[in-house]
């Protein structure tokens, strides 16, 4: 099974990895953690250096996922371009079975363009798992996966 985990350069990746770990996976699952740096972002040039936020996020996410799903293969990648387009293209080229990405549940209409999760779920050729992101979760009493790992 081939799975793309799409993360952005915010702390939301932790919630996405937490949700991924809770899902059932065949032992031969190959994960590809992907973050897309959109043109115009300051981080664009920084992706070339080791200290970039995009690089840091995908490596931390990869390490966390590999720790909790040790039998699986985990790759990480930083791409540049339009997030939704890149995700759909990589999914099609790599013939993935599923894309996992976070969503805040924002609505679009004729005036407000579709969000990245909406575009991906509409245009991708594979199944899409949309993890509901909850801003309050990080401050809640329940220990998160990353906190548990740190302990």
């Amino acid at each position: 099974m081939k799975v793309i985990i799409a993360v952005d350069q915010t702390d939301n990746w932790k919630q996405i990895i937490e949700a991924t770990v809770k899902r059932p996976w065949p032992s031969d699952t190959i994960f590809r953690i992907l973050t897309v740096v959109e043109p115009g972002d300051d981080a664009l040039d920084k992706t070339k250096t080791q200290g970039s936020s995009a690089d840091k996020v995908v490596h931390e996410a990869r390490a966390l996922l590999f720790k909790h799903l040790p039998g699986c293969t985990v790759y990480s990648e930083v791409r540049k371009g339009k997030a939704a387009d890149e995700l759909v293209t990589v999914a099609a080229n790599w013939m993935v079975d599923k894309i996992i990405l976070g969503t805040h549940g924002r609505k679009s209409n004729r005036l407000i363009p579709a969000t990245v999760p909406q575009q991906v779920s509409q245009n991708s050729c594979c199944s899409v798992d949309l993890v509901k992101l909850t801003p309050a979760k990080a401050s809640a009493g329940e220990p998160s996966l990353t906190q548990a790992t740190a302990q």
Binding site: K98, C126, S127, L130, V131, K132
Partner: peptide, 20 residues
């Protein structure tokens, strides 16, 4: 329906598409 659920659900949603 899938899109409406995705937009308004409080929990995660998995949209499964047919393999062509």
């Amino acid at each position: 329906v899938a899109e409406k659920i995705v937009n308004r659900s409080h929990c995660s949603v998995e949209v499964i598409k047919m393999k062509i």
